[in-house]
Simulated assay, not measured.
Amino acid sequence: MKTDLSTFTGEGSPGISAKVKYLLWLLFSNVFFLTNIPYPNNFKVGILKIFGASIGKHVVIKPWVKIKFPWKLVLGDYVWLGEEAWIDNISEIKIGNHVCISQGALLLTGNHDYKKSSFDLISKGIVVEDGVWVGAKATVSGGVVLGSHSVLTVGSFTSKDLAPYTINQGNPAQVVKHREIS
Rank of each mutant, 00 (worst) to 15 (best):
Thr35Asn: 06
Val128Ala: 09
Ala85Lys: 08
Ser102Asp: 05
Lys116Met: 10
Val134Gln: 09
Leu106Arg: 05
Gly170Cys: 15
Gly135Phe: 13
Ile181Tyr: 09
Lys21Ala: 02
Asp88Gln: 12
Tyr78Thr: 03
Thr3Glu: 07
Lys49Pro: 00
Ser102Tyr: 05
Val154Ala: 10
Ile47Met: 12
Ser182Glu: 13
Ile126Asp: 00
Gly110Ile: 07
Pro172Gln: 15
Glu83Ala: 10
Ser13Asp: 06
Val79Trp: 08
Asn111Thr: 08
Thr166Phe: 11
Ile50Lys: 14
Val45Met: 12
Leu107Tyr: 00
Arg179Gln: 06
Gly10Trp: 06
Ile93Glu: 03
Pro38Lys: 12
Ala105Ser: 04
Thr166Lys: 15
Gly52His: 03
Asn30Ala: 10
Pro63Ile: 08
Trp71Gln: 07
Ile50Ala: 14
Ile93Asn: 02
Ile47Pro: 02
Tyr22Lys: 06
Val60His: 14
Gly10Gln: 02
Phe69Thr: 00
Ala163Gly: 11
Val20His: 00
Ala163Ser: 13
Ile95His: 02
Lys124His: 07
Gly142Glu: 04
Ala173Lys: 15
Lys72Ala: 06
Glu11Asp: 03
Gln169Arg: 10
Ile55Met: 15
Pro63Asp: 10
Leu81Ser: 05
Val99Gly: 03
Asp130Arg: 15
Gly46Ile: 07
Gly76Thr: 01
Asn168Trp: 14
Val74Lys: 15
Pro164Tyr: 13
Gln174Leu: 14
Val151Ile: 08
Gly76Arg: 11
Ser159Tyr: 13
Phe51Val: 03
Asp88Arg: 13
Thr7Gly: 03
Phe119Cys: 10
Asn42Lys: 13
Phe43Asp: 03
Gly135Trp: 14
Asp77Arg: 08
Ile95Asp: 02
Lys49Gly: 12
Leu48Thr: 00
Leu121Lys: 05
Lys124Ala: 10
Ile55Tyr: 12
Ala136Ile: 12
Gly12Tyr: 07
Gly143Asp: 01
Leu23Thr: 00
Pro70Ser: 03
Phe8Ile: 09
Val65Met: 10
Gly15Glu: 09
Ile47Arg: 01
Ser29Lys: 14
Phe32Asn: 01
Val145Glu: 09
Ser54Arg: 14
Gly82Asp: 05
Ile93Leu: 12
Leu23His: 06
Ile16Lys: 09
Ala105Gln: 02
His98Asp: 08
Thr158Asp: 12
Ser123Arg: 04
Phe119Gln: 01
Val154Trp: 15
Leu146Thr: 01
Val128Asp: 10
Thr109Met: 12
Leu5Thr: 00
Leu108Ile: 06
Phe33Val: 04
Ser102Ile: 06
Leu146Tyr: 01
Ile95Arg: 07
Phe157Ala: 02
Met1Thr: 01
Ala105Thr: 02
Gly52Arg: 08
Glu129Thr: 00
Asn30Pro: 03
Asp120Pro: 00
Asn168Lys: 12
Gly96Cys: 07
Gly104His: 05
Gly52Cys: 11
Leu146Asp: 03
His178Pro: 02
Lys94Ser: 07
Ala105Asp: 01
Trp80Lys: 06
Ile50Asn: 14
Gly135Leu: 15
Thr109Tyr: 09
Ile167Lys: 11
Phe119Met: 07
Trp86Ile: 01
Val145Phe: 11
Gln169Gly: 04
Gly56Gln: 13
Gly110Phe: 14
Gly104Asp: 01
Ile87Thr: 02
Val128Met: 14
Thr3Gln: 08
Leu162Gln: 04
Pro172Met: 15
Ile61His: 09
Met1Pro: 00
Gly82Val: 05
Ser17Gly: 05
Glu180Asn: 07
Phe157Glu: 09
Lys44Gly: 11
Gln174His: 12
